[in-house]
Design a protein around this nucleic acid. Sequence first.
DNA 1: CAAAACCTACCTATTGGAAGGCAGTTTTCT
DNA 2: AGAAAACTGCCTTCCAATAGGTAGGTTTTG
Lengths: 190, 190
Amino acid sequence: MPTDTKTALLDSAERAARTLGFDGFSYADLAEDVGIRKASIHHHFPSKAKLSVELMQRYFDKFETMYNEFQASSSSGGVQLSTVIDNYRAGLDGGKSLCLCVSFTASRESLPPEVSQLVRRFRTMIIGWLEDAFRMGHSDGTITHVQDPTQEAAAALSLFEGAQLSARAQEDIALFDNAVLLLKSRIIQN
Amino acid sequence: MPTDTKTALLDSAERAARTLGFDGFSYADLAEDVGIRKASIHHHFPSKAKLSVELMQRYFDKFETMYNEFQASSSSGGVQLSTVIDNYRAGLDGGKSLCLCVSFTASRESLPPEVSQLVRRFRTMIIGWLEDAFRMGHSDGTITHVQDPTQEAAAALSLFEGAQLSARAQEDIALFDNAVLLLKSRIIQN
DNA sequence: CAAAACCTACCTATTGGAAGGCAGTTTTCT
DNA sequence: AGAAAACTGCCTTCCAATAGGTAGGTTTTG
């Protein structure tokens, strides 16, 4: 199938939200990008608020599936943590784009409460995975100096999101790498 | 003096930028907040772009002065680091507000290049201080497990900014505390 | 007095959105 | 099977509200 319009709109909106912020793009931008009339977008998404909800929902589902599949493969804690880091890194697009979760946290006040709730659920989910990774890494010896996995997980998520901002501030992915270097050095490669 | 209008406008704009994002407030908002007509703002700031520059410049200057004075007092590395953390924490306003640097990084595309440059200089400045703090803390023994101060500084700044986002996502300052707990536990209190 | 500060009155472009039409497909009823 | 009804996807047209900004006049103040 030749990419249905609704998906194309979601893709375009996600790109826009992650590079320009939720307040930084308009229906007109999406319309031009997708090649449809502005008013036609309302057929798929009656309001920008609804669009934001579907956007965040899709994002949540995507990562939930992805990580679930990955976690089922049950590799070492170190590999799990590495994968999360690489994932955040890949989402950066060289410092041009932010994680949707970060972008929506910044634009919180312009978004419906449903989105904020989804963002919270998203963060809780990621922290859960990180916690598992640290716990596993502690017992299988693939992550060094693990004290409290819960604390480590909270710190790690903040580190990743902050590292994204660092990279974006200078549009240089090296700054992301720099920020996560210390954490990465605690992962034992085998 | 009864707070001059220009300062009142800058204050209002800073508050708005940090809570709503740069694209999330308008001259109309500022006008109502300060008690002035919308068009009168242009007398002080000919354009929103110019306003953003002055805003970031003032922010930069304020922190430069603050940290310079503080650094001159030359306390231990641990105290210096603690102070930076407390500073970021205080700027959070319980999770409602972001650091202007974070907010402007997110809204990068809507801002003039001068602002992006100031943001970069701001970040470089903070990293410099953190580096000094880690270096000092390493030699005076008030921060444990310091490996490479440069790497530590980059990671710490990302951690602080990410921790702010965490707190904002849930409007709960406890999430900031949680994220920086591990780092804080490395500071030796005396 | 002159400059600074602020005003009213506009302006243009853009914002998200409403209303209704229309071709093509699918479903339902007889 | 064939007509009628309903739905889908997109369109054009229109709209009120808001965006940032300009022009020029009036008030305030050093």
